[in-house]
Amino acid sequence: MEVHHLRPGRSAGQARPAHRRSPRRILRRPGSLINPRRTYGADHLVVAGAASDYCLRTTMQRAAADGYDVTLVRDCHTTEDSEFDGVQVTGEQIVAHTNMYMKGLRYPGQTFGIASHDAADLFG
Results as ranks from 00 to 15, higher is better:
residue 47 V to K: 03
residue 26 I to A: 03
residue 73 V to Y: 02
residue 95 V to Y: 06
residue 104 G to A: 15
residue 13 G to N: 13
residue 2 E to D: 06
residue 41 G to D: 04
residue 88 Q to A: 12
residue 16 R to C: 02
residue 80 E to R: 13
residue 38 R to H: 14
residue 32 S to N: 03
residue 107 Y to G: 00
residue 17 P to A: 14
residue 117 H to D: 10
residue 38 R to F: 12
residue 32 S to T: 11
residue 122 L to A: 09
residue 23 P to A: 07
residue 108 P to N: 09
residue 93 Q to G: 01
residue 77 H to D: 11
residue 27 L to I: 02
residue 56 L to E: 06
residue 121 D to Y: 04
residue 60 M to Q: 04
residue 84 F to A: 07
residue 44 H to M: 09
residue 35 N to M: 05
residue 79 T to D: 03
residue 41 G to P: 09
residue 19 H to C: 11
residue 58 T to V: 12
residue 121 D to C: 05
residue 73 V to E: 01
residue 58 T to H: 03
residue 90 T to E: 03
residue 111 T to S: 07
residue 67 G to N: 04
residue 36 P to Q: 10
residue 79 T to A: 06
residue 2 E to Y: 02
residue 75 D to V: 12
residue 6 L to D: 01
residue 22 S to M: 04
residue 33 L to M: 10
residue 120 A to N: 05
residue 38 R to S: 15
residue 70 V to R: 09
residue 5 H to G: 02
residue 95 V to S: 03
residue 121 D to N: 13
residue 38 R to L: 14
residue 82 S to R: 12
residue 56 L to C: 14
residue 66 D to G: 00
residue 111 T to K: 10
residue 10 R to T: 14
residue 115 A to T: 10
residue 83 E to T: 14
residue 94 I to V: 05
residue 71 T to N: 07
residue 22 S to I: 00
residue 77 H to A: 13
residue 19 H to P: 00
residue 40 Y to M: 02
residue 78 T to S: 10
residue 108 P to I: 11
residue 72 L to D: 05
residue 92 E to M: 12
residue 53 D to N: 13
residue 32 S to R: 01
residue 47 V to G: 09
residue 9 G to K: 03
residue 82 S to M: 13
residue 114 I to L: 06
residue 11 S to L: 05
residue 43 D to H: 15
residue 63 A to L: 07
residue 94 I to S: 04
residue 66 D to M: 05
residue 56 L to A: 06
residue 54 Y to T: 07
residue 47 V to H: 09
residue 53 D to V: 00
residue 68 Y to E: 02
residue 4 H to E: 06
residue 93 Q to I: 07
residue 44 H to G: 09
residue 13 G to L: 11
residue 62 R to G: 14
residue 19 H to I: 03
residue 31 G to N: 05
residue 54 Y to W: 15
residue 41 G to F: 09
residue 37 R to V: 01
residue 10 R to E: 07
residue 117 H to S: 14
residue 116 S to T: 15
residue 30 P to W: 08
residue 81 D to A: 13
residue 123 F to K: 06
residue 70 V to G: 05
residue 102 M to L: 15
residue 33 L to F: 03
residue 86 G to P: 00
residue 97 H to M: 12
residue 47 V to P: 10
residue 123 F to Q: 07
residue 9 G to Y: 02
residue 121 D to F: 03
residue 39 T to N: 01
residue 32 S to G: 01
residue 4 H to L: 02
